[in-house]
Amino acid sequence: MISIRNLSYHIDGVAILDDITIDLPKGKVTALVGPNGAGKSTLLSLIARLEPLQCGTIDIGALTIGQCSNRQLAKQISILPQMTEHVPRLSVRELVSFGRFPYHQGRPGPEDEAKVDEALQVFDLDDLAQRSVVDLSGGQRQRAQIAMTFAQDTEYMLLDEPLNNLDIAASRALMARIRELAHSYNKTIVVVLHDINYASRYADWIIALSAGKTAAAGSPAEIVTPKLLGDVFKSDAEIRMIDGHPVVLV
């Protein structure tokens, strides 16, 4: 479980996050949603210790951020950054192998190779293993990146807007894979999503942020309501229930 207590964050005197206290459930897919500027990405960077904590605490399982070494944390939690323009000229296998760095520090052993093989297999990358990441499509590249975080073999995985630049087929396949990782490999996954419908369809738990505060937290069926859309997203879109999932009519 990731437990966040009294977390606040300011940039130049402006509150980005304001006294947040929440728990992110273990072994589940948690989606962070909210309008632009609500503080989703900041919250994710703080959990991933990318930015130093200013006030409040974050515990990741037994580790407390700021009180354990970076390398210890790297075996516990990994983050998939947003896709950037700058793509390294590495083969898929080389990229995924870098996920093992926290364990081997540059000297991969047989167990590291085995884990890389497993990651390639889990993410259907066997055929692409020797291809350069540069030549892949957006969806394939995203898959290779997630395979790298999978190879890092951490209990907690954070994904920052992984659906950016993906088409509908790649987006659905990715979300299905994320669910499978949580449920078959018992991983705790936190994913920042823009589209509330993807959150509603694929997440087990949703946390809605609004202006740096938690506006709501709960299962999709409890959370995705006209009231939430009105309060958090300032929208009066309709909601229908389909197969037990609330769907926002956009």
């Binding site: 210790r49 990318l50 970076n70 950054p81 390294p88 870098f98 760095f101 926290p102 540059g106």
Partner: peptide, 20 residues
């Protein structure tokens, strides 16, 4: 060499892999 290659992938990945 590995550390520099990782830094080339960006600050996020570097930190995520447990490096300073």
């Amino acid at each position: 060499a590995d550390q520099f290659a990782i830094v080339g992938m960006g600050q996020t990945i570097t930190t995520s892999l447990g490096l300073d």
